[in-house]
């Protein structure tokens, strides 16, 4: 069933070189292979420092790929993030791969509803439709309606996180990367996010995530992908 395969990682290696700390070398990933299919939620699992975030960020081309390949099925074709041109990467991010972190990058003066609707507006969806979907998601995330018209700079951490999750889920990306989206949420909101992840997966998204909360992890994961910390290079 290779038609279901959305993410194909082969031999991915990553070493950070810190030039201003005597050129210290921090090997983090050493030959990772990973396949993710539609309808799967693969949870990266391992101790702190095992490279979970590094791998997830590599799947978004946020971290550069030094060795190996990260291929994403984008518009029916395989695109290797390791050698794609900047505008191909931008197109992959605009249409295929979404990344939801726990932190909202607030944009001055932009209200919450607009922030959530922006990915749809950028994709050419009519403003009224984009805003009504944004409102529905914010309501589902229990963000009070009186906050929708305000820029989230003054929101609490949990409120900002929920705005960010709504923004991340609005586009229904075929590939969804989740970097601890439920950290700092209360139990009720964790359950809402878990439901949204399940819904996205049933609609055919290929999902890769990091979840420290055992309960959420057990609830959303269809499979764990183990990662182990590498010994530090001499």
């Amino acid at each position: 069933m290779t038609a279901d395969l959305m993410v194909r990682v082969r031999g991915l290696r990553k070493t950070f070189v810190l030039h201003h700390q005597n050129g210290a070398r921090l090997p983090v990933l050493d030959g990772v292979d990973l396949d993710v299919r539609r309808g799967e939620c693969v949870v990266l699992h391992g101790p702190s420092g095992a490279g979970k975030s590094t791998l997830l960020r590599s799947l978004y081309a946020n971290y550069r790929i030094q060795q190996g390949s990260v291929e994403i099925r984008h518009a029916g074709e395989w695109v290797n993030l390791a050698d794609a041109a900047p505008r191909e990467l931008l197109a992959v991010r605009a249409q295929t791969v979404g990344y939801v972190s726990q932190f909202l990058r607030v944009i001055p003066r932009v209200p919450a509803l607009e922030l959530v609707a922006q990915p749809l507006l950028g994709a050419g969806v009519a403003r009224r439709d984009a805003e009504s979907r944004a409102g529905a998601l914010l309501a589902r995330m229990n963000v009070p309606e009186k906050l929708w018209s305000l820029p989230p700079a003054t929101f609490s951490g949990g409120e900002q996180q929920r705005v960010n999750i709504a923004r991340g889920f609005i586009s229904r990306f075929p590939v969804l990367l989740l970097d601890e989206p439920t950290a700092a949420l209360d139990a009720a909101n964790r359950a809402v996010v878990a439901d949204m992840i399940d819904d996205a997966r049933r609609e055919g998204a290929a999902i890769v995530g990091i979840f420290h909360d055992d309960e959420v992890r057990g609830r959303v994961a269809t499979r764990l992908h183990p990662l182990a910390a590498l010994p530090e290079a001499a």
């Binding site: 991010r93 990058r105 922006q118 950028g122 050419g124 970097d179």
Partner: peptide
């Protein structure tokens, strides 16, 4: 990470 960075414009590959 820039999850709320400028929304991408339409890219035409042609």
């Amino acid at each position: 990470m820039a999850t709320a960075s400028a929304s991408a414009p339409e890219f035409s590959s042609t």
